[in-house]
Simulated scan of single mutants.
Amino acid sequence: MTIEHKSIDDIIRSRRSITSFKQEPVPTDVIIDLLDVAKWAPNHKMTEPWRFLLYNGEGTETFVQAFINSQPAPGGEVSEGVKKKADHFRSIPVHLVVVMPEDPRQKTWDEDHAAVSALIQNFQLAAWARDIGMIWRSNDWIYNPTFREKIGVEPGEKIVATLMLGYIQDIPKPKKRTDIKDKLTIIEN
C-alpha cells in the first residue's frame, strides 16, 4: 500500500490512527531517521524534553511482558482479556514509548508537554509520508509502577505516549470533523 501525497496539507488530512499493521519489520534505522526529523518540533528554550524507549524486533516481548506484569489478577493468573491484548501487542512490529521529565514548575511542565506532543505529531506525519502508521496510546496501565519500572521509565518521568507502529495494512475511513468555523471566535476590533 502506498500513500500518495502532494503537500503537507495532504499528509495532515490523510493521516489516520492505524491499528492494522503488516508483519514486515520496521528497521531501527528508519525509526531513528523519523525521530531525527521529528526533533525539529518547537520547544521553549531548546530544552528538548523528550526521551525514547524503542521496543523493536524481539525487544517487543519486553514491552508485552511489562504490560502483562502490570495487570494483576486474582490468584496470580493472567486473565483471558490480558492474554488477548498481549497477543495483539505482539502482532505490532514496533512500540515506541515517549517520556518527558516531570518538572515541578507548572509553566515548564506545560511547555515540555506541548513540545513533546509537537514532536509526536511530527513523528506521525513523517512516518505517514513513508507508509508507516501508528496509534498514539495513553492507556491507564502507563501509570502502573510495575509497567513503568519494567520498561525503564525513571522516577520523575511521565509517559506521554506509547506509539504502536508498523507498515500500514489497512487505512480506516476518515471520521467527520467539526467545521472549524464552529470552533472559531473572531475578534477584529
Rank of each mutant, 00 (worst) to 15 (best):
M1V: 15
M1E: 06
I3M: 05
K6M: 12
D9Y: 10
I11L: 06
S14V: 09
S17E: 00
S17P: 05
S17D: 07
I18M: 01
S20E: 15
Q23Y: 04
E24S: 05
V30A: 09
I31C: 00
I31H: 02
I31A: 01
D33R: 13
L34E: 02
L35C: 02
A38N: 00
W40I: 08
H44S: 08
H44F: 06
H44W: 14
T47G: 01
P49G: 03
L53K: 00
L54S: 02
L54N: 04
L54W: 13
Y55Q: 06
G57R: 07
E58F: 13
T60Q: 13
T62K: 11
V64N: 02
Q65W: 08
A66I: 09
A66K: 08
S70Y: 11
S70L: 12
Q71W: 09
P72M: 11
V78F: 06
V82A: 00
K85Y: 13
D87M: 14
D87F: 06
H88R: 08
S91Q: 07
I92D: 01
P93K: 00
V98Y: 01
V99E: 10
P101E: 14
D103G: 04
P104W: 09
R105A: 09
R105Y: 10
K107L: 14
K107S: 12
A115D: 07
A115W: 04
V116M: 05
S117N: 05
L119N: 01
I120L: 07
N122Q: 01
Q124M: 12
L125A: 06
L125T: 11
A126G: 05
R130K: 13
I132Y: 03
M134E: 05
M134Q: 08
I135T: 14
W136V: 09
S138V: 12
D140M: 12
Y143S: 09
P145A: 08
T146E: 02
E149F: 08
G152F: 11
E157I: 14
K158T: 14
I159P: 00
T162G: 04
M164G: 10
M164Q: 14
L165D: 03
G166E: 04
G166V: 07
D170P: 04
P174D: 05
K175H: 11
D179M: 06
K181T: 10
D182M: 10
K183S: 12
T185Q: 06
T185W: 10
I186H: 07
I187T: 05
N189A: 15
N189C: 07
N189V: 09
